[in-house]
Design a protein around this nucleic acid. Structure first.
Lengths: 331, 331
DNA sequence: GCACACTTGGAAACCGCTTTCCGGGGAGGT
DNA sequence: ACCTCCCCGGAAAGCGGTTTCCAAGTGTGC
């Protein structure tokens, strides 16, 4: 590889001058030398060694994003939002996928710390296990004590800047909207009990029903993905008129299960989800859901992480109930 | 930040010994010292500085993946496959999104070169413009001359290891299968003319029709995404019995357009796509398409890039026609 | 008991770049 | 004509590790 020294020698200048010309500096370099250096760099095909720069400067220009599952459009949208924001700041992005294993999340923070990345974004639901959350907090604390910045999209459980979707409130509002349509017998495809996002949505939904004086929903746990929704839908009782899946991909799984069994949606049963995944906008029947501005949330999380402000800020972002054809009005 | 030197001092050993204990080495260290060092590292919360390691070792443990659009499930699947493969090798992943701007691809290769990443994966269709392709080749050549490895998922146009989907052949086979069902009047939602993947699929399809002695399809160009398919579908002539969208997300756009206009699929018109995107498996009507093993392709590309073999290998991967309900038999 | 091969610990060079600190020269002020 | 001040170029000291090279200690075989 051609190094800065090669360039400097070829241009007949010192290392310092070459560095100042090629890699930015507060100091000026005369036009003549500057031209010589640039030409030499071009001829030799010089590319600065960023590892060396990072070491010398003590600051890197990469950020880390840790998501649960990149192929889930929810995370893809969030990550894309953050990546666009990063690009405008001239930052590179390192993406880690935990494949829904919380331990992996901790491991990634450690690795990103070793990389001395400028900031890390933890995207996705926290888990209820205080053990893992504690260890993650510790790892984050270690990272931050070394000057690292961090933010999270999810629950405010890590002591870092957080973009927190209003899961409880959104689910509650959805419940009220559905009740308004005349539904009274509900089931909730609730996802895994330890996933805080899932639990919050479920609780918010059930809480609103209770306030309305309606019977408690039939809660069915299972995986947080499409197949989880598919499987859980099989266990919904006959008398249920409306099913709330705690996220859109689960709702799609449920719709598929109903379709296979010849149960019509919304004629025989209504189905609602949560997130308003863009990729699903052409689904038939169109999904009633709670819209979250995912891209913005990703971008905002990056902003928070990079922000100078030392105070930990938690930003709640509200969801908006979107009624579509997967839900019908009862009488 | 705590450095190796801090650890060594605390443990009362030399820098060399501490390095050997903590960051792997061929050399052995006695059990007593080893324990002291490990304890010191633990107490201090030491994390190796990877930038320094990369510099000293002259080799990094990160790879770069450049995709066109992460929120497109096609790229998400490919990237996920590659990332899983990378994880098993203990490699970190840097992801770049070009948002379909070919210039960005060149810029990313330059940046990843500067990062001295171990390998770069270029995922996605090449463009027909020989100018950009040439500059990209140059940038890649520069990277590889410095010891970098590279591979591509797409067309064999860059002189690097390539995983090449059999776009022409797959589209041709699809055309034959559709003709078999009695279709004769076709339209192709062809995407942008400069995108090689789109052009190949279109050409393969048209070629097969010609061989069968059928009339040439009505070719409609437009963007390569869902909205492109939606828009292009509006221009399809009345007499067309079957529409081939050159990828699945475009096909979904077309289906949406038809649905809005009250045109039934497949009763009034048949629609087929290409890729067999997993996220779309629950779409109604189920999409006839050509299946590509996306995750495997991503993983394979990484393998090729990392492989020791110096010869440039091009691996064609075949697609499999999958007939589903979006297409009907005529007469 | 001695030469010899192995181990194992440490000193120091080095990886490629940034940046501080110096010094020389030209411009401007008096 | 002299003194400052400013501008710009270069030497060199890091940044935090890895690894080569030495030296000292430990066994082994004869």
């Amino acid at each position: 590889m051609v190094t800065l020294e090669d360039v400097a020698r070829q241009a007949g200048v010192s290392l310092a001058t070459a560095s100042r010309v090629l890699n930015g500096s507060t100091r000026q370099v005369g036009a003549a030398l500057r031209a010589r250096v640039e030409q030499a760099a071009d001829e030799l095909g010089y590319r600065a060694n960023i590892a060396a720069q990072t070491l010398a400067r003590g600051a890197s220009n990469v950020i880390g994003i840790v998501v649960h599952d990149l192929t889930d459009p929810y995370f893809a949208a969030l990550a894309d939002g953050a990546m666009r924001a990063a690009a405008t700041e001239g930052l590179l992005v390192m993406v880690g996928t935990t494949h829904r294993d919380p331990e992996q999340e901790i491991a990634y923070v450690a690795t990103l710390n070793a990389q001395r990345v400028r900031a890390v974004l933890l995207v996705g639901s926290r888990v209820a296990d205080p053990g893992v959350t504690g260890r993650l907090r510790d790892e984050l604390a270690k990272y931050r004590s070394g000057g690292g910045r961090a933010a999270c999209v999810g629950q405010d459980l890590l002591g870092v800047d957080t973009v927190a979707p209003a899961n409880r409130e959104g689910a509650a509002e959805l419940a009220r909207a559905l009740a308004e349509l005349g539904h009274t017998r509900f089931a909730v495809l609730a996802g895994p009990p330890h996933l805080v996002t899932a639990a919050d949505r479920c609780a918010g939904f059930a809480g609103a029903l209770k306030e309305l004086g309606l019977p408690a929903p039939h809660v069915i746990h299972g995986p947080f993905d499409r197949d989880g929704g598919y499987a859980a839908a099989q266990q919904v009782g006959e008398d249920t008129t409306c099913v709330f899946a705690v996220n859109d991909v689960m709702a799609v799984g449920a719709l598929a299960a109903y379709r296979e069994r010849g149960i019509r949606v919304p004629e025989d049963v209504s189905v609602a989800g949560f997130d308003d995944i863009v990729t699903l906008r052409d689904h038939v029947p169109a999904l009633t859901t709670v819209r979250l501005p995912l891209k913005d949330m990703g971008a905002r999380a990056l902003e928070l992480a990079l922000g100078e402000d030392d105070a930990v800020v938690v930003e709640k972002v509200a969801g908006e109930v979107v009624l579509r054809e997967s839900v019908r009005r009862l009488v």
